[in-house]
Design a protein around this nucleic acid. Structure first.
Length: 564
RNA sequence: UGGGGAUUAGUCUAGUGGUAAGACGCCUGACUCUGGAUCAGGUAUCACAGGUUCGAAUCCUGUAUCCCCAGCCA
């Protein structure tokens, strides 16, 4: 497999995990094989945090000769999972540009084998059926500073546990009646080793196995064994599973089966958003956003809808790197990756978000003409297009100031600017309404400057974008800002819901050049001087609706804020 | 002294005994029919305190701070 992303750098990523793999390869470990896996539970939508794990695991699968990455669903809890999530997860991974080939697996595929392994543990005295209640188990577990106590059932004869376990499977007990526990060490300082539960009873329909089972394996047990069954060499997971590693190892060792190695890395955190499933769910269910794919969400489906490219997300994940320290990546990095990608690829168009009418008084009434505009200055092959021009045009309200401050290069009374690709105009009059607000600006144009060129070589400081009023396409545009103004809403003292940015969505009616009429959902453009925009899935034929993916870097905004 | 982990610029990440590297951000300047892009330059002594050494971000000792763990969730 080859990657076509990040063509600007041929360097393969390197990090402590790849260093470990390199060492393993050099030492001939795992017979030279490298097998990773991406193991989500199908109980929600993937977000950009998952993208880091996907890029890591699949990236390693692509990087090493003969390596592969398995797509595996950790579907061991039927009450929270659904086929809907399986499908969206698969679509998202595919969208990011990764391919699992034939290696699509489900932990539920192994239920029978997992069950047999459990019987083996019981026979070997490594597991027992415990009839303590959930509350009792919790009490017996002890605390962080006090050791736990052994259950009265801990020394139950293997035969008895075996019988009980079979009856658990047969459905003789209601939920919660008993569990299968590993027999490890109730005094371990690591709570995960205090006889962890391996199986619980759940009379629930599973999205794949239906009602075949009423006992379901717990994560630690199922995950360790699934990795072993699939011959996973390097099992990469996030930091919070560090304390689970001894149990992960114990499961494979107690059964004497293939040994995989768990390695933990820090999860991705992004500023100005939340990443936990619980909080994302709350945003959706309480209606703070329109849905999982609301373009303000950090889910992959939302980022896709908003206009982010898979390449930009992969690039960001690569640049963030992989390490063991908790970190918070600035959203600015993702935005940079997006701009870099789209600057190269997105066709340019002109659109005016906040229109102010300009009348060119010396231009013939009723006349019009077309000018050539470059589709992408970064890529000549993208060619040019014709843009209609007439006596009345719209410009951005921000591009005119009656009383401009220093360093304002745009239109002002008496000042000449270039209408991009069209001509030079000079402001001669300002028309205001009774409240004193500017409603229209009058200009004269220099007929010698057709196309925007300056025959006598005189300099104009500003070049602004415009749209012919007579030809303009009115279109809905959704302007997004961060869902949270705080850097780390989840880490704040205040409830994150109280930190939601009330101005995160602003819908405006903009005027676009006619070429935009043909835009289809998913099409991305740079609207010159404004930002990158992507036609939303709500678009109708001939009536596109655009999401602003991100703005362009805006030097003027910084200057004007600094010294007004 | 419950256990486990982490600590390099505003952010992320390299460097594992030889005198701090890259990216984002920010600041300067050049250039420009996008105040975009591009180009050039600037922006830390490595949590702290001792110690070992000719030499320490790297080794040792101690301290501090932060993160994770008491689901029959993953």
């Amino acid at each position: 497999m080859s990657e076509n992303h990040n063509s600007s750098s041929d360097e393969l990523p390197s990090d402590f995990i790849r260093t470990i793999i390199n060492e393993d390869q050099a030492a001939g470990a795992y017979e030279g094989r490298v097998v990773t896996r991406f193991p989500p539970e199908p109980n929600g939508y993937l977000h950009i945090g998952h993208a880091k794990s996907i890029c890591l695991n699949f990236g390693i699968g692509e990087q090493y000769k003969g390596a592969r990455c398995h797509m595996r669903f950790d579907d061991t809890n039927p009450t929270r999972e659904d086929i809907e999530y399986v499908e969206s997860i698969l679509a998202d991974v595919k969208w990011l540009g990764f391919d699992w080939g034939d290696n699509l697996f489900y932990a539920s595929d192994y239920f029978e084998q997992l069950y047999e392994y459990a019987e083996q543990l019981i026979r070997d005295g490594n597991a027992y059926v415990d009839s303590l209640t959930a509350e009792e188990i919790r009490e017996f577990r002890g605390t962080l500073t006090e050791p736990g106590r052994e259950s009265p059932d801990r020394d139950r004869p293997a035969e008895e546990s075996l019988d009980l376990f079979r009856r658990m499977r047969a459905g003789e007990f209601p939920d919660g009646e008993c569990v299968l526990r590993a027999r490890i060490d109730m005094t371990s300082p690591n709570l995960n080793m205090r006889d962890p539960v391996l199986y619980r009873i759940r009379h629930a329909e599973h999205h794949r196995t239906g009602n075949d089972w009423c006992i379901y394996p717990m994560y630690d047990y199922a995950h360790s064994l699934s990795d072993s069954i699939e011959g996973i060499t390097h099992s990469l997971c996030t930091l919070e599973f560090e304390d689970h590693r001894p149990l992960y190892d114990w499961c494979q060792e107690a059964l004497g089966i293939y040994r995989s190695r768990q390695i933990e890395f820090a999860r991705l955190n992004l500023t100005h958003t939340v990443m936990s499933k619980r909080r994302l769910r709350q945003l959706v269910e309480e209606g703070h956003v329109a849905g999982w794919d609301d373009p303000r969400m950090p889910t992959l489906s939302a980022l896709r809808r908003r206009g982010y490219t898979p390449e930009s997300i992969r690039d960001m994940c690569e640049r963030v790197g992989v390490a063991r320290r908790n970190s918070m990546t600035e959203l600015a990095l993702l935005e940079h990756c997006l701009r870099e990608d789209l600057n190269r690829r997105a066709p340019r168009r002109m659109a005016v978000l906040d229109p102010l009418k300009v009348v060119i008084t010396n231009y013939p009434e009723g006349g019009s003409e077309e000018f050539d505009a470059i589709n992408n200055p970064e890529d000549e092959a993208m060619g040019t297009r014709r843009v209609p021009f007439a006596r009345e045009v719209y410009i951005e309200r921000d591009d005119f100031m009656e009383d401009p401050p220093r360093r304002f290069y745009r239109l002002a009374p008496g000042r000449e600017v270039r209408l991009r690709y069209a001509c030079l105009v000079t402001c001669t009059d300002v028309i205001k309404d009774e409240r004193g607000d500017v409603v229209e600006v009058h200009c004269t144009y220099d007929p010698e400057s057709r196309g925007g060129n300056v025959p006598d070589g005189r300099r104009v400081q500003g070049t602004i974008h415009w749209v012919s009023a007579a030809h303009a396409l009115p279109m809905e545009i959704r302007l997004y800002d961060n869902l949270f103004t705080e850097t780390d809403p989840a880490g704040s003292e205040t409830d994150f819901l109280d930190l939601i940015n009330r101005d995160s969505l602003d819908t405006v009616t903009a005027m676009g050049e006619p070429a935009l009429t043909k835009a289809k959902a998913g099409d991305r453009f740079q609207f010159e001087r404004l930002g990158y925009f992507c036609a939303d899935t709500d678009s109708l034929p001939g009536a596109p609706i655009f999401n602003r993916t991100t703005t362009l870097r805006d030097t003027w905004a910084r200057i004007s804020q600094r010294s007004p």
